[in-house]
């Protein structure tokens, strides 16, 4: 690196730092606007931050709150769901999501009532993907560490080392499976929220097909595939069909 370049970099450093300061100042500004009940202006700034690729629980949550206050409950649900995607146990988000859902026109579709499936889903949503991965890695380290210690060192060939090894192995197998499922779900299962006030679910990708049912804003759907302007979606209860891609947004 030439001396000239280094000099240039040092000159630009304050600007780079300032550029990093930018989002926080505008975030705070939006927060102040929200405090003054100026939800429209606050929302504009928040959405601008989202465009800059900021994936943040607080940001999504605040956007959800703005939409809630502006009575766009469908979009409020969308952003609360986005926040939950990062932090599935956030109490504020869960509370507000419940309130927003109460304003929706469509009753929430209940999934299967199989207690095992419900429990599995509950466990899956207990932690975020990152938390599951970290936990898996720690457990993996425990399995290897304690297992090898038991095998290699005479002084550690004790019952308690063996017990810890077995427990961590079992836990690792469970958590590892859950982590794989969770990664699969986040990578390959995409969900969306209807943002249009009302949308028609057709039997094929076009208006000329027959209407199967209608959905109102805030309804959650699983996106199976996209084809030009239409997407094939399914609901928890097994209903499925095509709707216009512009009528929903991905979580």
């Amino acid at each position: 690196m030439s001396l000239r370049k280094i000099f240039l970099l040092i000159m630009l450093l304050p600007f780079i730092l300032f550029a990093n300061e930018g989002p926080m100042t505008s975030f705070n500004k939006a927060n102040q606007l929200y405090q003054k009940n100026n939800y429209n202006q606050a929302l504009k700034i928040y959405l601008n931050l989202e465009k800059q690729q900021y994936e943040n629980v607080a940001l999504y949550y605040n956007i959800g709150n703005c939409y809630y206050k502006l009575e766009d409950f469908g979009r409020a649900v969308l952003y609360y769901e986005k926040a939950l995607h990062i932090s599935p146990k956030d109490k504020d988000v869960l509370k507000n999501l419940k309130l927003a859902k109460a304003h929706l026109q469509d009753k929430e579709i209940a999934g299967g009532s199989n207690p095992f499936a419900l429990f599995f889903n509950w466990i899956l949503n207990f932690l975020s993907v990152n938390a599951y991965i970290v936990l898996s890695l720690i457990l993996f380290a425990c399995v290897g560490g304690f297992g090898l210690s038991f095998l290699l060192f005479e002084s550690l060939r004790k019952q308690w080392v063996k017990q810890i090894f077995i427990v961590s192995l079992v836990l690792f197998l469970i958590i590892g499976t859950l982590t794989s499922v969770k990664i699969y779900k986040t990578e390959y299962q995409h969900y969306g929220i209807v943002t249009a006030s009302v949308t028609s679910i057709m039997s094929g990708p076009g208006d000329n097909f027959s209407l199967l049912f209608t959905l109102h804003s805030g309804s959650k759907l699983q996106i199976i595939k996209k084809q030009k302007d239409w997407s094939f979606v399914s609901m928890k209860n097994g209903y499925a069909g095509w709707l216009k891609t512009k009528d929903f947004e991905n979580i």
């Binding site: 926080m24 943040n56 607080a58």
Partner: peptide, 29 residues
């Protein structure tokens, strides 16, 4: 609804497994 959140910093969420760090640790282990 509960009030907005006002964190001190605005860090973007990064998925751990996509960054490759997790994979690296796993391979190393």
């Amino acid at each position: 609804i509960a009030y907005i959140k006002m964190p001190k910093t605005l860090k973007s969420y990064k998925s751990f497994y996509k960054s490759g760090v997790a994979l690296l640790i796993f391979i190393l282990e």
